[in-house]
C-alpha cells in the first residue's frame, strides 16, 4: 500500500514523457495522414542539440529548449520541402517507405558524425531528487511533464481557436474540399509538419538530462508513441495526453503488480481491446482516418 503514491507519481511523470513525443506525432498523423517513421530520429536530434549545446557552450537544456523551437521549425520546413512534399499525394506505401528511409538516413548520419557512443547531459540538477511525502522524483521529470501539459494545451488552443488551426482541421477533414475553399493545402501540410517536428525536437531536448544520447535513442519511445496516438484518437491533443497516461499506468502498475516482462503484453492487449470497441480511439471521430485520404 505504501507504494501507491509513488506509483501514481511515476505514472504521471512517465505519461508526461510519452505525451511530449506523442503530441507532435498525432498532429502529423491527424492532419497529414502520414505515419512518420522518422519521428524517433527527430527526438534523437533534439537530444543531440541539447548535448552539444551543453558540452561545447555549457548551455542548460532548458535554455536550449527556447532556441530549439525556431531551429526545429526551420528543420521541419526544410525536411518537408525536401522529402515529404514530393510524396504527400502518393500512396501510403510510398509515404511509409519515404519516412522509413528518412529514419535510417538520419540514424546513420548521426552514427557517422557522432559515433555510437552514449553521451550524457549532466547539468547541476542531474542528481537532485525531490522528496514529497513518501514520493520521490527527479527535477527533469517534472519539467518534462509540465512542458508536455503546456504543449498539449497550446496545441489544443491553437487547433481550436486560431485561424491557422481551423484551416489545418479543415484540411484534415477533407483535403479536396479544403482546396476548393481556397486553402493552400501544401502550405498547411508544411506548417503541420514543421509544428510536429518542433514538438518532437523540444521533447528530445527535455529528455536529454534523463536518458543517454545516442543515434537510436528515439526508438525506445516511438513505438509507444504510435500506440498512444491510436488510443487517443488521430489528431487529438487531449487524447494523446490521456493515451499517454493510460499507457504509462499500464506499464508502471503492470510492472509492479504482475511483472516487468508483461508490461508490453498488457498495453498491447489494451490497444487491441480499444481498437475492437472504439476503432477511432478515445477522442477520435469514427471514420476520420478515411477522410482526406
Amino acid at each position: 500500500m505504501s507504494a501507491i503514491p509513488q506509483l501514481v507519481v511515476s505514472t504521471i511523470l512517465l505519461g508526461g514523457i510519452y505525451a511530449l513525443i506523442a503530441v507532435g506525432l498525432t498532429l502529423i498523423f491527424g492532419v497529414m495522414r502520414v505515419v512518420n517513421f522518422a519521428h524517433g530520429e527527430f527526438v534523437m536530434l533534439g537530444m543531440y542539440l541539447a548535448f552539444w549545446a551543453f558540452a561545447l557552450l555549457a548551455l542548460d537544456p532548458y535554455l536550449v529548449l527556447v532556441v530549439s523551437l525556431p531551429v526545429f521549425f526551420l528543420a521541419g520546413f526544410a525536411s518537408y520541402g525536401l522529402v515529404m512534399r514530393p510524396v504527400i499525394r502518393e500512396s501510403h506505401n510510398v509515404q511509409i517507405f519515404t519516412t522509413v528511409g528518412l529514419s535510417i538516413a538520419l540514424q546513420n548520419v548521426a552514427l557517422v558524425l557522432w559515433t555510437g557512443d552514449f553521451r550524457f547531459v549532466r547539468p547541476a540538477y542531474y542528481s537532485v531528487v525531490v522528496r514529497l511525502g513518501t514520493t520521490a522524483f527527479n527535477v527533469s521529470q517534472i519539467v518534462a511533464f509540465a512542458v508536455a501539459v503546456l504543449f498539449t494545451a497550446a496545441l489544443f488552443a491553437f487547433m481550436r481557436w486560431s485561424y491557422a488551426g481551423k484551416v489545418m482541421r479543415a484540411t484534415a477533414q477533407d483535403r479536396q474540399a479544403a482546396a476548393l475553399m481556397g486553402i493552400d493545402t501544401d502550405r498547411v501540410y508544411g506548417l503541420t509538419w514543421a509544428i510536429g517536428i518542433v514538438c518532437v525536437g523540444a521533447a528530445g531536448v527535455l529528455l536529454a538530462p534523463l536518458y543517454p544520447v545516442y543515434p537510436t535513442a528515439g526508438l525506445q519511445f516511438v513505438l509507444i508513441a504510435y500506440v498512444v496516438v491510436v488510443l487517443g484518437g488521430l489528431g487529438d491533443m487531449a487524447g494523446a495526453l490521456l493515451g499517454s497516461l493510460i499507457v504509462a499506468a499500464v506499464e508502471v502498475i503492470g510492472s509492479y503488480v504482475i511483472g516487468t516482462a508483461w508490461k508490453e503484453v498488457l498495453y498491447f492487449l489494451l490497444f487491441i481491446a480499444v481498437l475492437l470497441v472504439r476503432p477511432a480511439g478515445f477522442f477520435g471521430q469514427r471514420g476520420a482516418e478515411q477522410l482526406g485520404a
Binding site: 512517465l14 514523457i17 525506445q220 502498475i253 509492479y256 516487468t260 508490461k263 508490453e264
Partner: peptide, 21 residues
C-alpha cells in the same frame, strides 16, 4: 527473478519499488 526488455523499459521505478519491498 525479474526479466525486462532493455530497449523499451523507460522507467525502473516500479521494479525498484517491488525489489525494495
Amino acid at each position: 527473478a525479474e526479466y525486462y526488455a532493455f530497449a523499451t523499459t523507460n522507467d525502473f521505478t516500479p521494479i525498484v519499488l517491488k525489489l525494495k519491498a
